[in-house]
Amino acid sequence: MNPRAPQLRRLALVVLAVLLLGGGSLGYVLHARHRDRPAGAADGSFTLDEPGLYYRDSATGRVARHSATGGPPATGGPACERFYAAGEHALCLRGLPGIPARTQALVLDRHLREVKRVTVPGIPNRARVSASGNVLSWTAFAIGDSYATTGFSTRTSLLDLRTGYLIKSMEEIPLTIDGTRYHAPDVNYWGVTFARDDNRFYATVSTKGRTHLVEGDLHDWSAKALRENVECPSLSPDNTRIAFKKKVSEDPSAPWRLYVLDLADLREHPLAETRSVDDQAAWLDDDTVAYALPGREGRAGDIWSVPADGTGEPRLRIAGASSPAATN
């Protein structure tokens, strides 16, 4: 018998114990890292650094990306019901479980890590970020789930990341209609869109059964109506035109059509998309507007695009998707 056998056995047991403990520690670290990542957060490799068309994938409920250079879509973005990204930040809206309905607005950095979260009443509906990423806005339905119904109520919030100033509901902004300061208990705002200066913005205001396009000033905290029958405005990258949905029918199943408004003279023209669009359109560039349409026969909706000058025809961009946001 080898006189060193007991010592070798003890050494083997010690080595085995170290390996087991080390493996257990590694497993614990990996588990802890997984546990520390919030539910629905983006994978670490999915960021806003690559230009492309970001969108919500209907099959997974997560944000994905079609690269500007082609290739298969990138997956692994955060779980959102509404999404938008521009500049240095993204905005992800999620509906929280329970009654009454609540919306959680998550502000994310370019690596899609959480910067701030805000919870407001209602159902997630619209999300927008200024070109710099400094100013964000979101809208939630407080009652009902469609602009086509009567009696709905919205809550639109604004957040300025430069100052940290948060306005949970902008209904009290001083409003001027037809040159007169306007007051009414039924005023509702939705669909904010921002100019490049991070000060001027446009939005829809509804009151007395009519909708108005308003131009707002963050610094002066004021808004004035420019014209009627404009919903869900979206300002072009060159800040000269607004894509919007215009009510053209009393048929609740197809009330709207997409238009573009020239801010210089307030003239408008319809786009080649003749189907009813209930979405806040997003500009892919100065010449192209994208939007989501519901699918048929229970299928998830799709993202389409159309030329902004009224020519051409609709083009299917991404099947089973919504919330388009182009970045470069």
Rank of each mutant, 00 (worst) to 15 (best):
226 L>S: 09
220 D>V: 09
234 S>G: 13
212 H>Q: 08
217 D>T: 09
222 S>M: 11
202 Y>S: 10
231 E>C: 04
212 H>I: 02
201 F>V: 05
205 V>F: 03
242 I>H: 00
227 R>C: 10
225 A>W: 07
214 V>Q: 03
235 L>G: 04
200 R>E: 09
235 L>T: 05
236 S>C: 10
210 R>F: 06
213 L>W: 04
242 I>Q: 00
240 T>I: 01
207 T>Q: 15
231 E>P: 02
210 R>P: 01
223 A>Y: 03
239 N>Y: 06
221 W>P: 07
240 T>S: 10
243 A>S: 12
233 P>M: 03
222 S>W: 09
207 T>E: 14
211 T>R: 11
215 E>L: 10
224 K>T: 12
209 G>T: 12
211 T>S: 15
224 K>V: 03
208 K>A: 14
234 S>M: 07
214 V>P: 00
225 A>T: 11
204 T>P: 00
217 D>A: 09
236 S>Y: 02
232 C>A: 12
217 D>K: 11
228 E>C: 07
222 S>K: 15
202 Y>R: 06
210 R>T: 08
232 C>W: 05
214 V>E: 02
235 L>F: 03
210 R>A: 07
236 S>E: 06
204 T>K: 03
240 T>K: 03
241 R>P: 01
214 V>I: 15
205 V>C: 02
238 D>N: 10
201 F>T: 07
226 L>A: 06
223 A>Q: 12
229 N>G: 09
205 V>A: 10
208 K>W: 08
216 G>P: 06
236 S>H: 04
216 G>V: 09
216 G>H: 11
231 E>A: 10
218 L>K: 01
206 S>K: 07
231 E>K: 08
243 A>H: 00
203 A>I: 14
218 L>Q: 03
212 H>R: 09
221 W>H: 13
222 S>Q: 15
223 A>H: 05
224 K>Q: 14
243 A>M: 07
219 H>N: 12
225 A>F: 11
242 I>D: 00
214 V>D: 00
213 L>M: 10
203 A>N: 13
232 C>H: 05
240 T>Y: 01
234 S>E: 07
222 S>T: 15
200 R>V: 12
218 L>W: 00
211 T>E: 02
239 N>D: 14
212 H>W: 15
220 D>N: 13
233 P>L: 04
216 G>F: 12
208 K>P: 01
228 E>N: 12
217 D>N: 15
211 T>W: 05
224 K>F: 01
218 L>M: 13
200 R>N: 07
202 Y>P: 10
238 D>L: 02
206 S>T: 14
219 H>T: 12
205 V>E: 02
217 D>M: 01
204 T>I: 02
239 N>G: 08
211 T>F: 06
207 T>V: 15
218 L>I: 13
205 V>I: 10
212 H>S: 04
216 G>K: 09
200 R>G: 01
236 S>P: 06
209 G>R: 10
231 E>G: 08
230 V>H: 07
233 P>G: 03
205 V>R: 12
212 H>D: 04
211 T>P: 02
234 S>D: 09
217 D>Q: 11
221 W>I: 10
232 C>F: 11
217 D>C: 08
235 L>N: 02
231 E>N: 14
232 C>Q: 10
242 I>C: 06
219 H>E: 11
236 S>T: 08
